[in-house]
Design a protein around this nucleic acid. Structure first.
Lengths: 116, 116
DNA sequence: ACCTTTCATCGTATTTATACGATAAAACGC
DNA sequence: GCGTTTTATCGTATAAATACGATGAAAGGT
């Protein structure tokens, strides 16, 4: 956030937004897909699969790590990455709950959204 | 994207990332919640419910509109906003498919992610 | 010890996002 | 017509994101 900090919001929404933000770039989605496909670990292979420089991929990996979607450990000179099923499941569930709460028949008095 | 455009990515991932990006801020999640709660329309009420200035809320609404999550029409001097169930359902489904593809047992040879 | 490989970080540049005050546009009431 | 209300947009400022080249650090091979 620019001027002021992003306080004043529900902790639930802040966490949810952080997860969504981590998914808010095609490169990071692609990285998750690569990790799922290759199963476990890798790193240089991800770079080869993406149209981005190594430094940029490393930054995206850091973001995914910070969101908790990815785990990484050092394996000799190379870095081993893999998905973190626990956090992914958490995020999936949180998003599902959000969408459920936004459903046409969740709490609104009007049966369907008549707007435009 | 800074220097270069964000091409070179699967159209699916670009669309998914755009949806996720729209959810990537607590204020926008809160706005969606308010719209779901109040049912249909509003605008100034959203401003009252958020710790943000009117202009900022309008910008977030524009982002949600651009993502397709929200519909808005003019109703006299005020603007009527409501959720767009169709796009929300699309995004929900796309995200569910993504998470399903990231599941521990989707295509990987290793049964579970053993990394850290 | 030296070189290679692999990756994270630094430094930098550019774009985008975020936030607000101020202003303009649209519609209603008088 | 005039003022009020409501909201979108403009202008601006600051922070964050995005991208890459270059540089370090860590580990292995010779």
């Amino acid at each position: 956030m620019p001027r002021t900090a992003s306080a004043n919001f529900a902790a639930t929404d802040v966490e949810l937004a952080a997860w969504a933000k981590a998914l808010g770039h095609p490169a990071r989605v692609a990285i998750l897909r690569v990790l799922a496909e290759r199963g476990t670990c890798i790193c240089g292979e991800i770079v080869d699969d993406l149209p981005l420089a190594q430094a940029t991929v490393s930054q995206h990996l850091k973001a995914l790590k910070q969101a908790g979607f990815v785990q990484g450990r050092i394996d000799g000179p190379r870095s081993c990455y893999c998905l973190n099923p626990a956090t992914l499941a958490e995020a999936q569930r949180a998003l599902a709950v959000l969408f459920a709460g936004l459903g046409p028949d969740c709490c609104s008095s009007s049966p369907d959204s008549t707007c435009s």
